[in-house]
Structures are given as C-alpha cells and as structure tokens.
Amino acid sequence: MPGPWSSYVAIGDSFTEGMDDPYGDGTYRGWADLVAGCLASEADNFRYANLAVRGRLLPAVVDAQVPLAAAMKPCLVTFSAGGNDALRRRFDPERMAEVFEGAVDRLVSSGAEVVLFTPPDVTVNYPAASRYLGPRIALCTELVRRVAKEYDTHLADLNADDGFRDRRMWSIDRLHLNPAGHRRVAHHVLSALDVECDAEWMESLPMATPARWVTARRADLQWARAHLAPWIGRRLTGRSSGDTITAKRPDLALLADHHSPAAPPVLSRQHREAAGPG
C-alpha cells in the first residue's frame, strides 16, 4: 500500500475521540492522535482532522462525519463506529451492515485509503451480559472483516488480540480504553499501514494478582453506581454523553505540536488498581 500519507481524517465515536486517555488539560489524546503523530514524522506539512464525537451511533457518524471526511479528500481515513449501536436493546444487524458498507463504499470512492477495525472483546468487562453481547460482537467482527476484504481496506483486527481481554487495558468505566489500551490500538493501526512505531505499545502488562472476591464485588458495586447507573439513565431519557460535545479537530489542518501526540502516555496507578485483575 502507498505511503507516507500527508493527510489523515479520523471519524467515529468515543473510541476514536480518545476516551479515556487524557492530556494534562482535560482533553483526550487516544490512539488516533498517536497515529497522527507517527505519520507526521514521515511526511512534511502533515494535516490531521478528528471528527469523532462520543456517544454517536453509526447512522449519526455516517450522516454527519462521512460526508465531511470525503469532502476533505485526505490520503487516509480511519473509520470505526457501531459499538454504541451494539449496546442498544433495539440493535438491528441487517440495518447496521447496510449503513456500514455504504459508508465504506463512499470513503473508498473518495480516493482515500481506509482503515477499519474489528471490535475488541469487551465481554471481560461485562461477564453478566456476555450471553447477548458476545454474539453481537461476533457479528460485528464478521461484518468488518468481510467489508475490509471486499473493499480492499486496511484492517486493524482488534478482536483477534487477546491483549484487550485484560481488564487493565480498560478505563475505570469499563467501556473506554485507558492509555495502555490506546497505545495498543495505535500499534495495530500503524502495523496495518506498515509504519514502524514503539514496540512497547504492544507489550502485555505484568501478570496481575487476582483480587479477593469481596474486593472484586465492592469494585463492581462502585462501578455500577458511578458508571452503569448514569449510562442507563441517559438511555431512559434519550440523552447522550456527546450531546454538548463537538469534534476536537474539525478541520484538516497542520498537526499542532503543543500536545505532543506521539509521546507515549503512562498507565497511571489509578488505572492499574481500578481495572482489577486481568
């Protein structure tokens, strides 16, 4: 595949926005910023846009972000969406497949190289929901692999990586990746593009000491109060975590260096302790 790339647009939801990998100013870095930083080191006047907004469902991403990305005519687009749809009660796999494939067709037709993602297996974070969530993840994985093959896109096959089945790759909310998880995704993307990056981004975490049963249940209760209950509340009231959020990099512009996007984030002690055993 061609390279280096002089322009890159990332589209999607919170996964691509960068939650939960914070910069010091409270905004989010994430794997897409890390990828942009690495690509910028190989191209002059590198331009980057990140249109992703947390909480967005697949149709909203396709309707609002895909046309913008196609119009920008970038060399490279990363497209990941559908994870929020898979968590909804009224999940429609046939409609999802139709919308997803149509979006990929439009992006490829715009002349951009496209990177797609299979979903990482998050059932380790929701064992009680694995009966219904597992088949949905498998269906999404099959869809992405098929479309990637048919449209000759790059593929970051996160579902095939057992590293994401380690809870310590995930934030304390058990829904978003932490800094270590984002580094791992960035490595998958850059490897799919045949771009070298820090090998440490793919290293497994040290073996964890299993938590005591009481400690684990206490953590489950804290998580349910702090994160699950608010999520359910938003679903019942038709609200989204992204209702007041706009894209962090809405324009395809030269990559600013004030955030040093290629600098490897550090997995904090808080993340290690709150995530629990692998």
Rank of each mutant, 00 (worst) to 15 (best):
A138G: 12
S130K: 15
V144S: 00
H258T: 13
R218H: 10
L57I: 07
A40S: 12
L87T: 15
A256M: 09
G181C: 08
A274N: 06
R212A: 15
V195S: 04
V77H: 02
G12S: 09
A180R: 15
R218V: 15
A253S: 15
L254E: 12
Q270H: 11
D121L: 03
A226C: 08
A199K: 01
H176V: 11
V104T: 12
A274L: 14
Q222K: 14
R136Y: 05
A229D: 04
F79R: 09
S6K: 13
D198F: 05
A103R: 08
N159V: 00
D152G: 01
A129M: 14
T27A: 12
N84S: 04
H182R: 11
P206D: 01
G134Y: 05
S80T: 11
A156N: 10
V122D: 02
L76T: 07
L228W: 13
D162R: 11
A263M: 02
A40I: 06
P135G: 00
G242P: 07
L193D: 10
T246Y: 06
E17V: 04
P119V: 13
L143K: 02
V266M: 10
C38N: 10
Y48Q: 04
A81P: 04
L177E: 10
T153G: 05
W213P: 08
A64T: 09
M19K: 03
V61W: 07
A60R: 12
V61T: 07
R225T: 07
G278I: 01
A69P: 09
S109F: 01
D25E: 11
L133G: 06
Y151A: 08
V104C: 08
D161L: 03
R56H: 07
G37M: 07
R136C: 06
L236P: 01
M72D: 11
E17Q: 14
W201P: 03
A229M: 13
D92P: 02
S240L: 10
D194M: 04
V266L: 12
A64F: 03
T118R: 07
Y126P: 06
A224C: 11
